[in-house]
Design a protein around this nucleic acid. Structure first.
Lengths: 123, 123
DNA sequence: CCCTACCGTTTCGGATGCGCAACGAACCAT
DNA sequence: ATGGTTCGTTGCGCATCCGAAACGGTAGGG
């Protein structure tokens, strides 16, 4: 995946702008990173583990889970083998939402020119 | 740029997670989209124009500019030919910040495998 | 049994964001 | 001049975020 910094910035811009138009809940960068992490890395996921993996404090994780849970993007479940732990589980709605975002981004990436030869066109 | 939805999600995750660790100001998705838009699309940029381009209300643009301006990521300048307008200008610091983000993302994208053949490894 | 360690949550004060509506300043046509 | 239009900003009330510290519940060693 040879992508120049310039290309990625442009891709990022288009995806963000396109995503703004959709009316799903407005997630923080942190919340979105958390959502991606839960769905793209192998379980089990605990608050402590997520806190370490994302370099975020535990309260931040707890609150992000509150919010993601309200939208049914993730679910909490007590670990029955160690009742101190909380296991974060995926949901159908969360999968669908991420899937849509991925498809949107892929559609935007597809028609983009591989190497933008001239960065600064002559004025 | 043939990127699968799966690949982009993974790329997005890694970049977001890596970006969380850096200590720059925590920008909203909207604020970051605005920042990217100002730097990647040709000027001039006005509040009204940005509002239309990003599908955000004018107050949202104004407040985002307040915040971006506080970090010196952008600057406001009255349009002298039509003093109702405000022109949004780029800054050195903003360029550097975006450049760093782009480089970070490019470094993360580089070692990623082009086609992850098996999406769900057998358990 | 305790006592300690660990886990996730909650509380507190303060900062920031939003939508909606109203606002002052600048422009423009008549 | 003057009335209407367009520009960006601000005020209001409410929701949400944050960091730091304290909290209750669970686990595990001695």
């Amino acid at each position: 995946m040879a992508l120049s910094a310039q290309q990625i910035l442009e891709l990022w811009r288009r995806v963000l702008v396109a995503d703004l138009r959709r009316d799903h809940p407005d997630l923080t960068a942190r919340q979105f990173a958390l959502l991606l992490h839960v769905y793209l890395t192998p379980p089990p996921h605990t608050v402590r583990g997520l806190s370490a993996a994302l370099s975020l404090s535990k309260p931040v994780i707890t609150r992000a889970l509150d919010r993601l849970g309200r939208f049914d993007y993730v679910r909490r479940k007590r670990d029955q083998t160690d009742k101190r732990n909380v296991l974060i589980q995926r949901t159908i709605k969360g999968s669908v939402t991420l899937r849509e975002f991925g498809d949107l981004a892929a559609e935007i990436a597809a028609p983009m020119q591989p190497p933008p030869v001239a960065l600064t066109p002559p004025r």
